[in-house]
Amino acid sequence: MSDVVLSTHNLTKRFGALVATDDVSIDLRAGEVHAIIGPNGAGKSTLIQQICGGLKPDAGRVELVGRDVSSLTTQARAKAGLGRTFQISQLCMEDTVLENVLLGAIGAGGSPWRFWRGALGLTDMRERAQAALHRVGLADAADIRCANLSHGQRRQLEVAVALTLNPRAFVMDEPMAGLGADGSKQLTALLDGLRAEAPILLVEHDMDAVFALADRISVLVYGKVIATGTADDIRASDVVREAYLGTEA
């Protein structure tokens, strides 16, 4: 299929006798949100790690826009267009909000090998950074130290940093983690708009958000994809209900 942006092919990862990722082949198409759900310990984080370069799979490969990126490092994959956000915020707490997004712009677009000019004086980088802040609704918070942000704002900032990479695909690991109902609703609206810029591979526990956002859902259980389909398909699936959603769904 030509509109596949990000895909895994027969990805497999074993930790001793445990098969954490078992022959996983999923794809992410242009313009969509593809959610990956599954009970704790299903191997969602392990899968994300292999897609983003933190873990080397035992078998299989990862492709980004038709290019095999399996042997690339995390930083090379970021440069190739993988915009990742973390379950536990990975931000520079001592720096300001603007500096955090500026880092993304410098890392992906520019070069860190400039020792003389001030980073805040790089107009193109700064504009890119401010555009990302504006996009997530943090434009007014640019000069606040990251450590002083609320939890919800940090989640937004994570997304903004990923945006500065001008990514071809987003990989988001539980962006709603720790958010209240309001914050979750707000972020859902933001992600809903983002899919037009780049498709989102979304790992999420918040089922309201998943069902509101996902064009397709894949269910991961014991490292295996047991079902892929639309929200309705997944809701109707007996296998999924049994393995994951329980009787209440």
Binding site: C52, A78, R84, L91, L103, G104, A108, V161
Partner: peptide, 11 residues
């Protein structure tokens, strides 16, 4: 502050 952060933005 966060090596992971630096890596994920391509540094």
């Amino acid at each position: 502050q966060s090596a992971t952060r630096a890596e994920t933005v391509g540094l």
